[in-house]
Design a protein around this nucleic acid. Structure first.
Length: 448
RNA sequence: GUGGCCGUAGCUCAGUUGGUUAGAGCGCCAGGUUGUGGCCCUGGAGGUCGGGGGUUCAAGUCCCCUCGGUCACCCCA
C-alpha cells in the first residue's frame, strides 16, 4: 500500500475506464450545443453564503455535507456541493442578456459516507436557463436530458414530474401540510418528529416507513396549485406529450434542494438499485436569482451525475462507450530517430500514432504495439532504413464476439483475413512495404 | 452520523490447531527466435502481510486501538 492514497470517497479514474467519462461529456456537449447552450466555467469554491442561501440553510446538503473552510484572508468559503447556485451567482454578477442558456461540467463535493454510486467528489453536468418563465423552456430542458440519455443508449430510464407551486400557492400548501403533520406528529419517524416544523416538505421525501405512512393521507401539491401554476404545469406536460416523452406524476417529488418552484423532475435508472438510481434531476427556481442578490429572474435547469450515468450504462450492458483506438504503432529498431519523426508526421496528418521508447528489442516493441490496440504497426529496421521504406503490418483482425468489434473495418486493402485457427483468433499475417514518403497518405487511405 | 463485512505482490487470491528464508495465477521485464506481437517454454524483478501496541520462546495467523476499503441506513448525483 502506498504512502498516500486518494482521500476517502474520492477516486482516480484512469484509462481505459476514463474513456466513459470522455464519451459522456462529449455526447452531452453535442446535445446542448444543438440547442444553443454555451459553456460556463466558474470557480469550484464560492463564498459559503452562495450555497447557504442558494441551496437552502436547512437543506441536508448545506447543514451536514458541505465542505466549508476559511482561507488565509479569513473568508468563509465552501467547495461547490452542486452546480446551480454558482452558475446563478455568475449570472447575477455579469448579467448576460436573457434568456441566458448555459451548460457546465463540474466536480461536486459533499462530505458523506461513501457507498456504491456515492462519492465525496462526484461529477455533474447540467444546464441552466435564466431569464424566462416560459413553460416551453421546462420542456426543452427535460427533453435535452431525455435525448442525452437515449443518445447514450439508455433505455430503462423513468421520468417523474411534479409542480411545487410558487410564492402565491406554496405558503398555503406549506401551512396545510404543517397542520396535517402536527396532527400526526407522533406517527413520524424519529428524525422528523423533531424537525418537521422547520421544513415540512422534507417529510415528503423521507423514505422511512413511518413517514411514508403519514404521507399517504397528506394534502397533495397538485390540489393546491394556484391558477397560473396549474396552467404552467399543464403546458409543461402537454409539451412532454408532444415530444413523445413519457412521464409519471409524483406528488411527493420535492427534491432535496430548497430553491425549486413550479416544475420539478427527476430521472432514475430502473437498471440500478434504488439507493443510487437517481441519475439526474432539476426544475424551475424562479426565486433563486433574487435570493442571491439579482433582479427577479426566472430560471430552470438540471444536473446529472456522471458516475451514476456510467453505472446505469454498465447496468444496461452498454460497454464500449467511446473506446478510442490507436491507428498506428511505430516500431523502430534503428535507434529511434525514424520513430520520432514518423509519429510526429503521422499525427500532423490526423493519424493517431504511438511508439516504443528506450531502444527495446523488436519483439518487445511488437508486443507493445499489440497491447496498444493499434491497428497497424509500422516497422523500421536497417533494411527499411536503407531502402527508405516502412513495413506496414496489420495487427488485428478481430471478428465476432470480441469487445473490439467497434474498430475493425471489413475488407481493408492489404489485409485479406487469414484463416482462423483455434489459438490465434482471426489474426492476419499480412504486411507490406510502403515508401517512406508516401506513408502518411497511404495509411490515411487504408485507415480511413 | 450509525451499523455489517473486508485489508497478504501492480491485480485476483492461497497461507492448515500460532512454528524456518511468505506462495500461486494473471500482469510486468528479459531470453528461447541476433527482422516480426498474440500461443508455448525458461528465467527475473516485485511484499516492513494497511499502521501501532499487546499476548507468546515464536504472530500473516490471537487480542486491543487506529487508518483504509466496501456495502447498507440517512441523504443525494
Amino acid at each position: 500500500m502506498s504512502a498516500f492514497q486518494a482521500p476517502t470517497g474520492t477516486r482516480d479514474v484512469l484509462a481505459p475506464e476514463s474513456a466513459g467519462f470522455e464519451a459522456v461529456v462529449a455526447r452531452f456537449a453535442r446535445t446542448v450545443h444543438l440547442a444553443g447552450y454555451g459553456l460556463v466555467v466558474s470557480p469550484m469554491f464560492e463564498d459559503a453564503g452562495v450555497f447557504r442561501r442558494g441551496v437552502g440553510e436547512d437543506s441536508e446538503v448545506v447543514t451536514k455535507e458541505m465542505y466549508v473552510f476559511e482561507d488565509k484572508g479569513g473568508r468563509t468559503l465552501a467547495l461547490r456541493p452542486e452546480g446551480t447556485a454558482s452558475v446563478v451567482r455568475a449570472f447575477v454578477q455579469h448579467r448576460p442578456p436573457v434568456p441566458w442558456k448555459a451548460w457546465y461540467v463540474t466536480p461536486a463535493f459533499r462530505y458523506e459516507r461513501p457507498q456504491a454510486g456515492r462519492y465525496r467528489q462526484h461529477h455533474q453536468l447540467g444546464v441552466e436557463v435564466l431569464g424566462s418563465a416560459d413553460p416551453d423552456l421546462d420542456v426543452e430542458v427535460v427533453s435535452l436530458l431525455a435525448d442525452f440519455y437515449s443518445s447514450l443508449g439508455l433505455e430503462r430510464v423513468e421520468l417523474r414530474v411534479n409542480s411545487m407551486g410558487d410564492a402565491v400557492c406554496m405558503p398555503g400548501y406549506r401551512e396545510a401540510l404543517g397542520a396535517y403533520l402536527k396532527a400526526h406528529e407522533d406517527e413520524l419517524c424519529d428524525e422528523h418528529k423533531a424537525t418537521w416544523a422547520k421544513n415540512p416538505l422534507r417529510v415528503l421525501d423521507c423514505k422511512r416507513p413511518a413517514c411514508v405512512a403519514v404521507r399517504a393521507g397528506a394534502p397533495k401539491l397538485s390540489d393546491a396549485l394556484c391558477g397560473p401554476c396549474a396552467e404552467h404545469f399543464d403546458r409543461f406536460l402537454a409539451g412532454l406529450d408532444a415530444l413523445g416523452i413519457t412521464w409519471l406524476r409524483d406528488n411527493w417529488l420535492v427534491r432535496g434542494l430548497d430553491y425549486y418552484t413550479r416544475t420539478t423532475f427527476e430521472f432514475s435508472s430502473l437498471a440500478l438499485e434504488a439507493a443510487q438510481n437517481g441519475i439526474g434531476g432539476g426544475g424551475r427556481y424562479d426565486g433563486l436569482v433574487e435570493l442571491l442578490g439579482g433582479p427577479p429572474t426566472a430560471g430552470v435547469g438540471f444536473g446529472s451525475g456522471i458516475e451514476r450515468i456510467l453505472l446505469a450504462c454498465e447496468a444496461e450492458g452498454l460497454v464500449d462507450l467511446g473506446q478510442s483506438r490507436l491507428d498506428v504503432f511505430v516500431v523502430d529498431v534503428t535507434g529511434g530517430e525514424v520513430a520520432r519523426d514518423l509519429t510526429h508526421e503521422l499525427r500532423s496528418t490526423g493519424i493517431s500514432a504511438d511508439r516504443a521508447f528506450d531502444g527495446r528489442s523488436l519483439r518487445s516493441q511488437l508486443k507493445q504495439a499489440d497491447r496498444s490496440g493499434a491497428r497497424v504497426a509500422c516497422i523500421v529496421g536497417p533494411e527499411e532504413l536503407a531502402a527508405n521504406v516502412v513495413t506496414v503490418r496489420w495487427l488485428r483482425r478481430d471478428s465476432g464476439g470480441s469487445r473490439d468489434a467497434i474498430g475493425a473495418p471489413e475488407g481493408d486493402a492489404g489485409a485479406a483475413s487469414a484463416g482462423n485457427d483455434g489459438g490465434t483468433a482471426g489474426v492476419s499475417r499480412e504486411q507490406e512495404r510502403v515508401g517512406r514518403d508516401a506513408l502518411a497518405a497511404t495509411l490515411g487511405g487504408w485507415l480511413r
